[in-house]
């Protein structure tokens, strides 16, 4: 087994663990804001590790670059989406769970 394959396996498995943690967080966290934390961040790390793992297996350089491009697009996508969802939830008056004092 080559060193590249080993790196690939490590990154892919770590990515899958992050996906699992993200799903558990999504199911267990108490309100929409904390769930957004679990989704937009932990899952993005999972996607990041998965794509780096696949970059190690890439047959050509262009394919590797394209995977990184897709990852960056997904990053921007979830960051923008989570901001929009959080802001809209705030405007609709969904109160964050267990926040004793909020400044808004």
């Amino acid at each position: 087994m080559s060193i590249l394959e080993l790196c690939s396996i490590v990154f892919l498995v770590v990515g899958a663990i992050f996906f699992l943690a993200g799903t558990i967080g999504l199911l267990r966290f108490p309100d929409v804001y904390t769930r957004l934390h679990a989704l937009a961040k932990v899952d993005n790390l999972g996607l990041g590790f998965t794509s780096i793992g696949l970059v190690f297996q890439a047959p050509e350089l262009v394919i590797a670059l394209k995977i990184i491009l897709i990852w960056l697009l997904a990053l921007v996508a979830s960051s923008t989406l989570s901001f929009l969802i959080a802001r809209r939830a705030m405007k609709r008056g969904i109160i964050p769970w267990r926040a004793k004092e909020h400044t808004i």
Binding site: L26, D43, L47, I70, L81
Partner: peptide, 9 residues
């Protein structure tokens, strides 16, 4: 959001 991460992966 989930489909844009897990689905893509």
């Amino acid at each position: 959001l989930l489909f844009s991460t897990s689905g893509v992966a």
